Simulated assay, not measured.
Amino acid sequence: MSKYDVFELVTHLRKCPEAYLQSSDFFSTEGVNSIALVQDTYRLVTNDFLRNDFNISSNLGTIDDNHWRAIHISTWLLSNPDFINNPVIEDKLYSFWFIELHKASAYVKCNEWINDDERAEEMVRLLLYCCEIIPFGENQDEAADKLSSLSSVERHKVLKQSYEAHERIMKIKREMEEQKAREAANTYGRE
């Protein structure tokens, strides 16, 4: 098994148990206690099981359910042996969970992280990027290009720009048609 092989990590991610897809619930047994799951993942990654102070977002109430479920799924990904006992990435997990994954989960439903090959690869590559890890068999430029081509945030940005450009074109066409109609009316009025 190659360390940080994208295909192997995607395969691991796609085997995520159903329990990780449950809603976040901090007070009862109906869902997943997301904070406990994140803290346990920190402990697994750092190999420090007695520690209790971890970098977790202070705005927990603003995190929606879809984002929490994406975090749950990513903790399963981080249970892969490549990430266990790797304290170097600890400081980078906050950025992955609470910044980058937050942006991406705005455009990706939680089940797609597991069921869609491209979204699964996007999560793997996003984690590797945030942890400053270059995937096995790739160089930094190749890894960045592949992440960019899969990025839900980038895809949404391109679609939005395309839509805005189309709207500008349609506005110019309407203005030209209105101008043409006014000129025709003026010509008709002079005759």
Rank of each mutant, 00 (worst) to 15 (best):
M1G: 14
K3G: 08
E8F: 11
C16D: 01
C16I: 04
E18W: 05
Y20Q: 07
D25H: 01
F26M: 14
S28V: 06
T29W: 12
E30N: 15
E30C: 11
N33Y: 14
D40Y: 07
D40L: 08
R43N: 04
L44C: 04
L44K: 14
V45P: 01
T46C: 07
N47K: 09
N52Y: 09
D53E: 13
F54P: 06
I56N: 00
S57W: 09
S58Y: 08
N59R: 14
L60I: 15
T62I: 02
T62M: 02
T62C: 01
T62K: 10
T62W: 02
H67N: 01
H67R: 09
W68V: 12
R69D: 11
A70F: 11
I73N: 04
I73Q: 02
S74Q: 07
S74I: 10
L77R: 04
L77F: 09
L78K: 03
D82E: 04
V88G: 01
V88E: 01
D91Y: 09
D91L: 08
K92W: 06
W97L: 13
F98Q: 03
E100G: 02
L101T: 07
K103P: 00
A104D: 04
S105F: 02
A106W: 07
Y107G: 00
Y107A: 01
Y107R: 11
C110G: 02
C110W: 09
N111L: 13
E112T: 10
N115F: 06
N115P: 02
D116F: 09
D116K: 12
D117C: 04
E118D: 14
E122P: 04
M123T: 06
R125G: 00
L126H: 09
L126S: 10
L128M: 12
C130H: 09
C130R: 06
C130L: 05
E132N: 14
I134V: 15
I134D: 02
I134T: 15
P135K: 06
P135R: 07
P135W: 08
F136H: 14
G137Q: 11
E138V: 00
N139I: 01
Q140T: 00
Q140G: 00
E142N: 03
D145R: 05
D145L: 05
D145E: 09
K146F: 02
L147K: 12
S148D: 13
S149D: 09
S149C: 04
L150C: 09
S152V: 13
S152G: 13
V153P: 05
E154G: 05
E154S: 11
E154V: 08
R155L: 10
H156K: 15
K157E: 03
V158Q: 15
K160A: 08
Q161M: 10
Y163K: 14
A165E: 06
H166I: 05
E167G: 00
I169M: 09
M170N: 08
K171C: 05
K171S: 06
K171P: 00
I172G: 03
I172M: 08
E178S: 08
E178K: 15
K180A: 15
A181K: 15
R182L: 14
E183M: 14
E183Q: 14
T187C: 00
Y188W: 11
